[in-house]
Amino acid sequence: MAKVIAVRLLSCLAVVAGSSVLVFCILYVLPGDVVMNMIDPSSMSPEAIANLRHELGVDRPFYEQFLHYFREVLRGDFGKSLVNSEPVLPKIFAHLPATLELAISASFVSLTVGLALGVLSAVHRNKPIDIAVRIVALFGISMPTFWSGILLILIFSVFLGWFPAMGSNGWNTLVLPALTLGMLGAGFIVRMVRNSMLEVLGEPFITTLRAKGLAERAVLYRHALRNALIPGVTMMGILAGEMLAGTVVIETVFSRQGIGRIIADAIMAKDLPVVQGVVLFTAIVYVIVNALVDISYAYIDPRIRRLHNDRRSGWA
């Protein structure tokens, strides 16, 4: 077990290093002059611009810039915002709670709604209830989230006045954004749970259990569901990524003060160190969550671990 974890951790580190290369490449190899974007060129002398360039290190070759960046990241320094010279990492941590709150509660919505509807759908396969659930789930994944968010604001804050339209203080400001994001996740989970339930229900051991005269309820919930849920653990990993990415739009719609909002604003302001920092941070979170999922996966079921390693698809 310890070896599994050690190997996993090492490969995590490698992947994070890779992510930082990728992020760095996307933002710095692309055309556009970082310095010219930062300043008003007419208000500065060419020497002052050259100095600034030097100060920022953008006059050095690409690999040197990258090594420098990577070294700083390892030291926990993600650089400074070009807009107000605020250090990036503390900024991310300051805005993290609002995003975590949202991601966790949305995941909760996704899981509960997704599980309940998924099981319902599988049990009543091809009955009207199944069709209805599947259509609802499809709507969940087919609607642009900014649109469903605005619709929810109109319905629940303007017309009904039940929940506030914006903000990130207090549980009631969390309801609408969590619902919006959760609907998306629930759509995915319903499909996943339904499929794996149906698959498990077709397995021979279920037939055996039924033949033994076990009550259908017990067959379904004690045996089938439990087995169907194992892939669900993996789903958590993927969901984590989706939720983090989803916050960019959701936090903008609901004016929440989280890291998704930071990156949206940073992109508008061309504040590349912040964009870079947030993307890299998300990548790290994603890797950690998935490593945990992977480890717990192996822990739950050694058989799966072997199977999993055989197929070697990492974490998905």
Partner: peptide, 15 residues
């Protein structure tokens, strides 16, 4: 509150 609909919703709902 940059999003128009949200801004208007927040004053209409008294938030």
């Amino acid at each position: 509150i940059p999003e128009e609909a949200t801004r208007i919703g927040s004053v209409q709902s008294g938030q």
